[in-house]
């Protein structure tokens, strides 16, 4: 689908020595909204170029975790480090802001809302390059073409406004825009949930290719276990803001140790699927948990 992907050496020039270690470490992250503890002591590690899934039902704190990682929400406590550099405190200046943006980028859930309606695709990618890299106009233009090609978009899409594009094309633009900053970690927050199934497959295939070629680490936030199984190596299962199970994706999703993970797996519709039994199991799980979790 996409052509071969090679990164131009020119644009990576100012990254220097810190490009070596890009491990994402999250330790004991906490965030409460009012009295509700949305994220409660979450810890995980993502190796450079690795792929980690965060799964759980709606409201389990996975989106809040992702938003804390990119700095859209500030955590109450805990630490977020990329290559040993702390990033949980608010940024103090421009240099710090740009450095953090080059550590981590995010692709949002809904491609219909995540692109500026007034900005054409080419400009949308180019302005990221202008902000982060010192390139000439020609270099920038070439890099935009390269980035768009990497996600399978051509000249026609480049000069279009987002409203002229389909959902899948918009999500490709969002991915190209995120890759433009050359992040070490790419957070995909339900990045295929708003797309229909056949387009999902295309985007997942594209993402797998990008990870292989560009060496970006993926943090895949999703409620869709099939997608997570397909694209991640490790997985963290969240429930009520806490990690209930973590480990290699294959192990966790084939032989879950925690009852909640088993419940999640059983909840996926298939032949012989019994929603009534799942609802009963869920009630039993909640009784078991007793007063420990409020909801």
């Amino acid at each position: 689908m996409t052509g071969s992907v090679t990164r131009t050496s020119g644009t990576t020039g100012d990254k220097g020595a810190d490009a070596v270690d890009a491990t994402l470490e999250v330790v004991d992250l906490c965030k409460a909204f009012g009295g509700h503890r949305a994220v409660d002591g979450v810890s995980f590690t993502l190796a450079p170029g690795g792929s980690l899934g965060i799964v759980g039902e709606s409201g389990c704190g996975k989106t809040t975790t992702a938003r804390m990682l990119v700095g859209l929400v500030s955590p109450d406590s805990g630490s977020i480090r990329v290559g040993g550099r702390e990033r949980s405190a608010p940024t103090r200046n421009r240099a710090e802001r740009l450095a953090r943006a080059r550590e981590m980028q995010m692709v949002f859930q809904d491609p219909y809302l995540s692109l500026d309606p007034r900005v054409v695709v080419r400009e949308c990618v180019e302005e990221v390059l202008r902000l982060h890299f010192d390139l000439t106009r020609e270099q920038r233009t070439a890099r935009v073409v390269e980035l768009l090609d990497q996600v399978g978009l051509g000249e026609r899409e480049a000069s279009a406004l987002p409203k002229a594009l389909s959902g899948g094309q918009r999500q490709r633009v969002a991915i190209a825009r995120a890759l433009a900053a050359e992040p070490k970690v790419l957070i995909l927050d339900e990045a295929v949930a708003a797309l229909d199934v056949s387009i999902q497959a295309q985007i997942l295939d594209l993402l797998a290719g990008i990870r292989r070629d560009a060496g970006v680490g993926f943090l895949f936030v999703s409620h869709d276990l099939a997608v997570v199984r397909h694209i991640t190596e490790d997985v963290v299962v969240l429930r009520g803001g806490r990690v209930v199970e973590a480990g290699p994706t294959v192990d966790v999703l084939t032989e879950p140790r925690h009852t909640y993970t088993r419940l999640l797996l059983d909840s996926v519709p298939r032949v012989g699927w019994d929603p009534a039994r799942i609802a009963a199991d869920r009630r039993a799980l909640e009784r078991e948990a007793g007063g420990s979790s409020g909801d």
């Binding site: 943006a101 809302l113 995540s114 309606p117 825009r177």
Partner: peptide, 26 residues
């Protein structure tokens, strides 16, 4: 609160630039 403004923040733009160049025109 719209994702497109949030994505500008994630990209590293300053609040001033986002407001003047993107939020106000919209």
């Amino acid at each position: 609160a719209r994702p497109y403004i949030e994505s500008y923040r994630v990209q590293g733009w300053s609040g001033w630039t986002i407001c003047v160049r993107h939020l106000i025109p919209n």
